[in-house]
Design a protein around this nucleic acid. Sequence first.
DNA 1: TTAGGTGCAAATCTTTTGCAGAAAG
DNA 2: CTTTCTGCAAAAGATTTGCACCTAA
Lengths: 161, 161
Amino acid sequence: MEARIEKIKQALQSQGFKLTPQREATVRVLLENEEDHLSAEDVFMLVKDKAPEIGLATVYRTLELLSELHVLEKMNFGDGVARYDLRNDSTHHHHHHLICVQCGSVDEIMEDWLTPLEVRLDEEYHFQVLDHRLDFQGICHRCNGRGKPAALDRSKTHAPT
Amino acid sequence: MEARIEKIKQALQSQGFKLTPQREATVRVLLENEEDHLSAEDVFMLVKDKAPEIGLATVYRTLELLSELHVLEKMNFGDGVARYDLRNDSTHHHHHHLICVQCGSVDEIMEDWLTPLEVRLDEEYHFQVLDHRLDFQGICHRCNGRGKPAALDRSKTHAPT
DNA sequence: TTAGGTGCAAATCTTTTGCAGAAAG
DNA sequence: CTTTCTGCAAAAGATTTGCACCTAA
């Protein structure tokens, strides 16, 4: 935990930004809720517990800044709010989501299934892939009663609102 | 063109809705700009040429209604506005987008590359896929100077704003 | 002391909604 | 007539911005 904060601190400082108490509180909230896909409002309410004087605008500015530094990923599941996801270290981050149309949950798959496709894109479409995102809409294991699959054991979940 | 409007009219009427002049003008704009991914505002401005008295709220209501009828697909590329895409007939629609981080263009791939993955999702993740969406961020053929690939000849493009 | 940061409130932008009147079956 | 639909204006909700003050190298 501390090591990851230190790393984020360095990412900020390398670009001339500071890890202020407000930013640190925000980062801690993100680290503590890494399994979820929090919205700015979610983060704001959680940060208020640690630093009640913080303003919503500061949270937005922090999330925006961390997104630009590629510490966070800003994403949109179509529910009207942006959600943010910490990127794991320096390794490629793969965004494969299982979005349940019934309960609204979002599970995240940690495997990368797209490398072969990226090769094809380069060769057949002359497109140089920098990042990707893959979302599936459907019925999750909770709603279809088939039980939790072993493959999801290391997944992140964003519970429905 | 007329045949497709007739089909949409039937989709509306089968659910007790009418193809009003405003809705028809909206649908015609969508048909005439099928290669683009228009926002509600885009559609509104184009519809005004045909029917200057139309209100923005009507456009929003029409787009929402057509999305619910699965005539349109509502999507979000992270630029702050919802964009709409006509679905092709009754066949499955595959949403594979090449989003250029440099010029902002969005090309659409019409192939479906994900069927094998959907099988795996069912078997390994107990997730029943209803729909999917795959976005790649990167540098497009226009920006990297490698020329237009033959594979893109039947693609849709949403030009940068 | 100087650039970066913050909180607050106001502003902006997209989208939705209430309402009274219009259109269609 | 009764339901659906429309335009307008107002409202709502998310995000951004202007500004005066603050805080660290």
